[in-house]
Design a protein around this nucleic acid. Sequence first.
DNA 1: CCTAATTTGTACGTATGTATT
DNA 2: AAATACATACGTACAAATTAG
Lengths: 254, 254
Amino acid sequence: MTQNKKTPRYREIADGLIADIVARRYAVGSSLPAESELCEQLQASRHTVREALRILEEGGLISRRQGSGSEVVADTPPVRYRQTVDTIEDLLQYGKQSRLSLLGTRELAAHAALAQRLRLPEGTPVIELRGLRSERGEARADGTRLPGRPFALTTIWMSAQPARRRDKLLHPDTALSTMLAALDARTLGRIEQAFTAVALDADAAEQLQTKKGAPSLCAERAYFDKKGALVLVARSLHRADLFRYATVLRHEAV
Amino acid sequence: MTQNKKTPRYREIADGLIADIVARRYAVGSSLPAESELCEQLQASRHTVREALRILEEGGLISRRQGSGSEVVADTPPVRYRQTVDTIEDLLQYGKQSRLSLLGTRELAAHAALAQRLRLPEGTPVIELRGLRSERGEARADGTRLPGRPFALTTIWMSAQPARRRDKLLHPDTALSTMLAALDARTLGRIEQAFTAVALDADAAEQLQTKKGAPSLCAERAYFDKKGALVLVARSLHRADLFRYATVLRHEAV
DNA sequence: CCTAATTTGTACGTATGTATT
DNA sequence: AAATACATACGTACAAATTAG
């Protein structure tokens, strides 16, 4: 029998405040009493009250602003799931066993649908990269490698601005490293991703060495930097028999 | 020109310790100096040092244990992305616009593949639920609704234990609510999900009112409770033309 | 526009509790 | 059993942001 640990005071206070918010005794949009007032009401030190408020803030129930106070921003403890990855490669699940080879790069004027996805005016010049991701392939006795099977056909669109980057993106030798530099995990703030299933068209099927009409997992991703500006949009078509996208979501306690 | 805010002392200390860890001056697996020692070294109060250590802990670089100390657990700040959902329904992205209708429920002995997925011995009795999720459908003038198009065929497997729950799961009137109760967000700790694309077989295509061989987005999810025990496994086949799975991943700073 | 009051943020000190070694 | 180390909790003071007037 394991002895239950005594609930600390700050946790009791946090739970009480959460209960108050859930019961709408503090409405969303209204302010919580000031820390000093809570100290009096609850007969606790400011340190203890602040520890409790920190829990509410981390749980997304309140937001605190210096000089202004603590505002209730939600009345249902949001359920959060966290996905931890070390690199963007991990996020994309391509790993070290695969390599991306550039098929081509070109400049085009954004048509309506593309312009909307890139949040750019219609007709704006855009750089398009196409690449093929392949398995790493077996090592041969002489040290060379057998060609691996291609499993993902990726198309990437980026703004043609600034001009210096545009030139690098159009040059086959520097295109990939320039694109990957833009995807540096340190600069990214938000990734929107969507998965759909599609039937491969003739062109994509040929690139992926499979049949036209074969089912394919399509991943569309828009990458935004920390300021919220769109960095690039990518669409990958995966051979269904060679690729699955798997994640673990971990629950975060309130 | 916006004035840069002065970096607080605890943040400086945190950054210094992070730099030390990244530079391997504190190795992974080793202990950080005790809080009291850091206070002396850095000429800061315990409160300030603890605030810094909290940052490292939240960032996943150290773990702290009462009586033992603070251990370095990683030397690269992991990149974390957070997915916030309010309910399990949100996670499943079905929302209020759809309804799940039960097709049937039955008991079977787990064959090899199923037993492995459910982490149960082969031959263990398992309850299988099949359900169809449909669009909500248009409202008619007389208040009734047109039938909505089905867009997801879901199969759910749960252990037949305990017997009381087994009976509820086998009874059509209580099966769905019993299943949803098991998915209460408060009890879940971890969700493993994987997406693949598949071609629909004849049976699934008929249920989804589309053609055999049509591409389908297949989502497989395993739900675990807070103790790590498997709650249930679900597999959903989605009509590709009626469903996409979209998420936003937000970067979390260290 | 400026001032004063309010409120949270940072930072110090001290004491005691509890888990680990 | 004793020493060590983190956790909890009280106190105080001043800084910085916000708001009211």
